[in-house]
Nucleic acid binder design. Structure first.
Lengths: 337, 337
DNA sequence: CCTGGCACTCCATGGTCCTCAGTGCTAATT
DNA sequence: AATTAGCACTGAGGACCATGGAGTGCCAGG
């Protein structure tokens, strides 16, 4: 049904439309691409492609524009991920090295990705679920409060203040810290609840209330709000592309962190590039957008996702190359931390 | 030169233009405002106001539009900060209570402010400069690395990894922590450099290298990147207003954190509301925008700024009211933390 | 000093015409 | 059977023009 040449025509249509943002006609195609046939033949092929739903015309007597289905075929079969240039690789490296802490790594990564792709970049903080506890610190603040700091092997630091305990003896806090670290240091977060279960029983009943309060805050901080932290950059790039007048909706969708987290989470094939095109996005406001996302992590364990949001009319090979490359570099940096 | 009535006319022009976003004519003014004079009289006043540069016409035979100078006069002399409604106050309270840590307080605050003003909100993290050290924690990570965590009395936590020390004895780290806390706990950050100056001398020469490394990272983390942390929300609101086609520039300016920090820093009168209108903003991209900002802090010491960016054509009394109210509430919440 | 009246200006709106890119179809060619 | 040249047709977009109306500035009278 779709012979080689029709596919070549589709590829050419996508490429030209991405470049020019204007419906592409048969003559222009014949001129700019070495298809070796006349415009009339291309027109016939276009009719076939249109019947199958890969391209469409905005109105009679206009050129053709790819549909979401057309982009999908293009991404799946007609293009390959474009590796970055040497200069770009260098830029990545110099941009990411020198970050002092996790916050800065994430902040730099997201700006880098936005700059490389000229689109909106999203980076999710490394998930807690698969990391393990490096150390727990309990700090008596003045008065009746304790600050708890949990440090994970991925460099993430969670902090909480525990309040309303009545007066607390610093010595007790120190003991509790010892005990807590013995119980959970080195463990996966998923195992922490089990590991601390019988801890209160080991505590002098007089101070048990404090121990229980600390543990409940600890568990809460690990279980809740895992992956809800996300960082954006490059929203200004949205204004450059004229976003089918739905710019408002796109911006709104981008502000809904929960939406973004879900979108990134939808990626099908872990540790691979995922592309969601237009209508494939379940979220209303992003029906005119595409999302290219990838997992990143240390070794072969995925910690979180990064991604890019842009118009369906985007340079898929280039964007995919950038996302993949940045994901890998971040993984390396994290491993080195 | 500018009698009462002319000022009333200017006020009416500003209010109507803010509402309708259309040049306002003399008849409309006479209809909608109880000025008690005829359109012809208003026209005469308008000529005077225009000569003085407070209003302007986009073209002959159009109504008048306030200039930046006009808005300035309006803000300084013709309007008063509009207090929030009871419902809004309740909303603030329920929105801000229940935040578990500083990150969440800031995140909620910025979203709240964006929602209240329907504009872009900016919140700066509490500055380190005026806060004091609550506690310093040194945690030996596996191998050759130490993590340092500095906790301030404003709830802010700074963390750094110190690397490349060779093998480190946990006992030494413990001693160092003791010594460090004795030296600087409770001190203002500004005093820390002096306080630690002669610390290396007190350390067993064998371990002095470690102490020096830790101190240098400590000083660096306090001195550098003080106030560079900023959070935004409500960029989607920019798309709603049609931003004189300069939307792109505004978005770009908003992404430049350093620019925003500088802009907020420019606020003249500390602990007061500051309004910068249009051309008064030194940054190129924000020549069509106004910024309303305020300090917030604990007690009467200012820790950082919050603000709102919107079109010069904004509801100044309402925005100023919201910014002031939110600034106060955040101060209270921080004090309670 | 205010106001009604009036001539004037200029933008916005909407209609008409024309151009032109691009199409689909048919008939001829390979 | 596939390709191509030729041709009539279509519809968007731009140029042009006329018109209505909001709003002005100014003048003369209260």
């Amino acid at each position: 049904m779709l012979d080689e040449r029709k596919l070549a025509v589709l590829r050419a249509v996508v490429e030209d439309f991405v470049n020019t943002n204007e419906p592409v006609g048969s003559r222009a195609l014949a001129d700019r691409h070495p298809l070796g046939v006349s415009p009339a033949t291309i027109r016939n092929d276009m009719v076939a492609l249109e019947e199958d739903g890969y391209i469409t015309q905005p109105h009679t007597s206009a050129g053709r524009v790819p549909t979401d289905k057309g982009y999908r075929l293009f991404v799946d079969r007609l293009s390959s991920v474009k590796p970055l240039s040497v200069a770009e690789r260098r830029a990545i490296e110099s941009f990411l090295t020198g970050a002092v802490d996790l916050d800065e790594i994430v902040a730099r990564t997201v700006r880098l990705l936005a700059q490389l792709t000229r689109q909106v970049a999203i980076v999710q903080y490394p998930s807690l679920t698969r990391s393990s506890v490096q150390h727990v610190e309990l700090v008596p603040l003045g008065g009746q409060r304790i600050m708890m700091v949990v440090i994970t092997n991925t460099g993430r630091v969670e902090q909480r203040v525990i309040d309303g305990l009545g007066d607390v003896d610093p010595g007790v806090v120190g003991d509790l810290r010892e005990m807590l670290n013995r119980a959970i240091a080195g463990r996966h977060l998923a195992d922490v609840p089990d590991a601390v279960e019988d801890l209160p029983a080991q505590v002098d009943p007089e101070h048990r209330r404090v121990a229980v309060a600390v543990l409940s805050v600890l568990l809460e901080s690990l279980v809740e709000r895992h992956e809800e932290k996300i960082v954006l950059a490059g929203t200004a790039n949205l204004a450059a592309v004229d976003f089918a007048a739905s710019l408002r909706e796109v911006l709104e969708a981008l502000e809904e962190n929960m939406v973004l987290i879900r979108l990134l989470g939808e990626a099908k094939d872990p540790s691979m590039l995922t592309v969601r095109i237009g209508e494939e996005n379940l979220h209303e406001g992003l029906r005119t957008a595409s999302i290219v996302s990838a997992d990143y992590g240390v070794g072969n364990q995925s910690l979180a996702k990064i991604g890019v949001v842009g118009p369906t009319r985007m340079d898929y090979p280039g964007t995919m190359g950038a996302v993949r490359a940045v994901a890998r570099y971040v993984g390396q940096i994290l491993a080195g931390q």
